[in-house]
C-alpha cells in the first residue's frame, strides 16, 4: 500500500515536471521543473529500496543528487550565457544560430 502510494506520487511529480518543461517560457522555471523530474526518480529509488529492504536504492539516490547538483551548475551557466546575449531569460528568444 505504501509502495503503491509512493509510486503514484513519483509519477505525479514526473508528470508535473514534464508539463513545466513543455509549457513554461522562463528558463529558471524550466530548470526547476527539471528538478521535479529528479525528485520523482529519487522517490522511486527510495521506495523500492524500502520494499526490497536493501541499500542500493539509497546509494543511487545519493548519486542522483550529485548529478542534479552538476546539472544545476551547468543550467545556471547556460542561463547567464543566454542572459548575456539576449538580455532576457525567455527561452523563445534563443531562436537563431549565431548571436
Amino acid at each position: 500500500m505504501a509502495t503503491k502510494f509512493a509510486v503514484i506520487l513519483g509519477f505525479l511529480l514526473f508528470s508535473l515536471g514534464f508539463f513545466g518543461l513543455l509549457a513554461r517560457r522562463n528558463m529558471i522555471t524550466i530548470l526547476l521543473s527539471l528538478e521535479l523530474l529528479f525528485a520523482a526518480a529519487g522517490i522511486n529509488f527510495v521506495t523500492f529500496s524500502n520494499l526490497h529492504q536493501n541499500f542500493e536504492g539509497q546509494i543511487f539516490t545519493i548519486f542522483l543528487i550529485v548529478v542534479a547538483a552538476g546539472e544545476a551548475a551547468i543550467g545556471i551557466g547556460l542561463l547567464i550565457a543566454l542572459f548575456k546575449v539576449k538580455k532576457t531569460a525567455n527561452v523563445d528568444s534563443a531562436n537563431s544560430m549565431r548571436g
Binding site: R24, R25, L31, L79, I80, F83, T88, A89
Partner: peptide, 19 residues
Amino acid sequence: GVMFTDNEWIKITRQTHLQ
C-alpha cells in the same frame, strides 16, 4: 540565477507557451 536575470518581462508577458 533569478537575481542575475531581469524581472521586467515577467510582469508584462505571458509565462506559458501557446502550446
